[in-house]
């Protein structure tokens, strides 16, 4: 059964590393739903966070193939791990009538979304949170009239380190 998997690939920040990753996934017939690449606290290390929709056995092969890249230090599929914080960011531009504005602002407040810009016919809102929260917000504001939105794709970080035995380290 296909389901969404979030995969964190830790790589050496070498030229063309993103092309290597995307090329590999394409070559092996895997589709990328979203990908973020960004530097980490160590300038030599990049993290690439991929969301792919595939069955478990395919994911195992994706992880192995990604590991084979010479520049790959670590690959983790965090989908079935509960110790990761996953976040996404969205900016939406909504077509808004004067009479609906209060409702929308109230809804935004409930979601901790921020209004960035308001003009006569549109409003721009930003929101961050876990992907489910983003999805829910999109559904709730859809009736107001979405002009466009852009999502960041998922990014993630481990909440705590697990020891080798799989037990919690510290709290």
């Amino acid at each position: 059964m296909k389901e969404k998997h979030t995969i964190i690939v830790t790589v050496i920040n070498s030229p063309g590393v993103l092309a290597r990753i995307s090329g590999l996934l394409y070559q092996r017939g895997f589709n990328i739903e979203s990908a973020i690449a960004a530097p980490t606290e160590d300038p030599k290390i990049y993290k690439v966070i991929l969301v792919v929709e595939e069955s478990d056995e395919y994911i195992e092969q994706i992880v192995k193939q990604l590991n084979k890249l010479i520049d790959t230090i670590r690959v983790v599929d965090i989908s079935h791990k509960d110790n990761y914080i996953v976040r996404e960011y969205i900016i939406l531009k909504l077509d808004i009538q004067q009479k609906n504005r209060t409702d929308l602002l109230e809804l935004s407040k409930q979601f901790n979304a921020h209004v960035i810009d308001i003009s006569i016919d549109h409003i721009i809102i930003e929101l961050s949170g876990n992907p489910q929260k983003i999805d829910r917000f999109i559904e709730l504001v859809r009736p107001f009239g979405i002009k466009e939105y852009v999502r960041s794709g998922e990014f993630a970080m481990a909440e705590y380190q697990k020891s080798k035995k799989g037990e919690k380290n510290g709290s």
């Binding site: 030229p15 063309g16 092309a19 290597r20 090329g23 590999l24 070559q27 010479i70």
Partner: peptide
């Protein structure tokens, strides 16, 4: 050459 060989070699380098 890097783009061309990416999927058919174990690794490749462009030395700048």
């Amino acid at each position: 050459m890097i783009g061309l060989t990416r999927s058919i070699c174990k690794h490749n380098y462009l030395v700048k």
